[in-house]
Design a protein around this nucleic acid. Sequence first.
DNA 1: TATGAATGAGTGTTCATTCAT
DNA 2: AATGAATGAACACTCATTCAT
Lengths: 198, 198, 198, 198
Amino acid sequence: MKRNRPKYMQIIDAAVVVIAEKGYHQAQVSKIAKQAGVADGTIYLYFRNKEDILISLFQEKMGNFIELIEGKIAGKTTAVEKLLMLVESHLEWVAGDSHLAIVTQLELRQSNKDLRLKINDVLKGYLKLIDKIVVEGIERDEFRKNLDVRLARQMIFGTIDETVTTWVMSDAKYDLLSLAGPLHQMLVNGCGYQTAGN
Amino acid sequence: MKRNRPKYMQIIDAAVVVIAEKGYHQAQVSKIAKQAGVADGTIYLYFRNKEDILISLFQEKMGNFIELIEGKIAGKTTAVEKLLMLVESHLEWVAGDSHLAIVTQLELRQSNKDLRLKINDVLKGYLKLIDKIVVEGIERDEFRKNLDVRLARQMIFGTIDETVTTWVMSDAKYDLLSLAGPLHQMLVNGCGYQTAGN
Amino acid sequence: MKRNRPKYMQIIDAAVVVIAEKGYHQAQVSKIAKQAGVADGTIYLYFRNKEDILISLFQEKMGNFIELIEGKIAGKTTAVEKLLMLVESHLEWVAGDSHLAIVTQLELRQSNKDLRLKINDVLKGYLKLIDKIVVEGIERDEFRKNLDVRLARQMIFGTIDETVTTWVMSDAKYDLLSLAGPLHQMLVNGCGYQTAGN
Amino acid sequence: MKRNRPKYMQIIDAAVVVIAEKGYHQAQVSKIAKQAGVADGTIYLYFRNKEDILISLFQEKMGNFIELIEGKIAGKTTAVEKLLMLVESHLEWVAGDSHLAIVTQLELRQSNKDLRLKINDVLKGYLKLIDKIVVEGIERDEFRKNLDVRLARQMIFGTIDETVTTWVMSDAKYDLLSLAGPLHQMLVNGCGYQTAGN
DNA sequence: TATGAATGAGTGTTCATTCAT
DNA sequence: AATGAATGAACACTCATTCAT
């Protein structure tokens, strides 16, 4: 169960590939093992069970992403700028790894309730990040004073998520990154920020 | 396969109850048959297969809902008013049938990709309705001229969906209907509409 | 799970054959199903799980045997005669169904502790029968007054069981039934009964 | 594979502990290795395979026991006295090492047929010892002239074995040693010996 | 129409054994 | 001699669907 050995990430990356290409329900442990170039049994030296592979996958990938964004945001002053950075980073992250995008946006959502609850725990870190930006925006008078933080967070996350899911389901037929600007404008307007062109 | 016989809706309603109470992965055909008071084999006189039950369920329930909203919206003049009506109706619909809410917001999303694609077909009718309101809002100068219709639609649907999902996952612990006003304000602001209090 | 349908006994008899011929650890459910002439899944319409097949097997076969002996014994007057009847019946039963003998004497004993505990429950009926004969023998002054009933029962059962197991492990090379007389004499002597030839 | 190195007995003793505490089916090689304080692979420097550990265990422990009894019996004159010594020694041996008792009476019997045949080879030394006492008893006119030696041996071994097994399965709740006298009386009576109190 | 007994394909996980170091 | 990471074969059980009645 040593999570710092090379085979740990090797198996997780193999799981991403197999799930993305074959789909969640066709991602048998034996297929993941084959893709990772290890024996079936070796999987269980690094993960408790199949579910543990999927949770670990989400934690590693989403966890890294959240840390990445936190770093990028730290350099920005206003909530509006921070939100732009978050939107851009999110779209870049998704567009940069199509396999991972398919896995997190489509395939992993068909998992059972237990797994989804654990995935939600990981997501909470991301939602808290959004909350912090919204609260800051209100305090700095960038956003409406009477803005409901939870609703604003649900708008920001729901909109980005829906945008990304639509894009993934379209087989990435159009340019996702160019949507960052317009998307950002909608979200800050929704938060009560008055953009110039309005 | 006659869809107008009483047992057709009887089976669909049984499916809603079973899925809501037991969860998607515990909703075996035999359980649905038992709940509907028919034999397992009878199911296959009305539906091609299990997937067909779920698609039909979504079509019947969501189809009714779309028709309902279309009627309500027809009586409104402005896009802003129409959007408020849509948000209110959506929240009322969800809050009014907790079984159906659990099924559509949580359980049916665990279905495989094929089923989800077919569910999306049904949703398209709803998304078109939103598109129509957005286009009208732009033409009537209520919304920004340069508003991206697809993005606006994704914001509106994504935000409502995320709000409802969060509420369902919280076991409906708070009042959903009272969120309609604030939710609506965020969405129209996002579309470039200047509300009074801003 | 209806235990009075023909397939119930059909599956149990198939299990006896497969276990006797292939051994306990090679008696996969699929082999039993094939031998019974039914599909794998059909097994589970009649038994909860594999363990349930084995317990039921023991209950049906041993249960019948105990009833059989009880009937035969009822016709006898003295404890000595009853014990002879029990020994003869036991040896006849075993010698009459070599498959069943292998299963109960050798194969089923390799089962796990849970299963063995349940098998012991069934055996208790047999042990109680022995106890009754011993108690009667003491009361009727056929056996020693100070005979320890539990020890006598362990001698009677242990001796018969060891005799039968040795015979089964020898591949039934010699005549088992002819041992009934000498075996019986030893046991009643052990209980304090004075046989003529002594 | 040198059986006189310290680790040989170290591993056997570890096997006794692990099997007694966890049960036969939970006694994985890795657990035995851990208990013995050696690496998994080291086991295979001293034993051909897992079965070889168990056979060796039985040989070492039972072999010692047989030698012990042979010595004790040598000092006795009559077959009746020798049998008493055997019964007492057997019960003392079992009662003195509860781990070993569990292993030999309960756990090792769940092994497969091959292993049981090899265990029987070890037991033959014990059975021959019993045979010798019985033959001597007949020759010395202590036992019946027409006593069947094999049956007598099966009675003696089967009775002791059943008594011990029942005691072990009862979690050693009562005093086993005090049964030696009554047990012995039953056995010699069974062999045709007339005890005083009869 | 309606029934429900029967079907049979499909998979996560364990653990004795090996072998490069 | 000793290690322990890696191997890979093996199997009980579920449930959507069928079809004889």
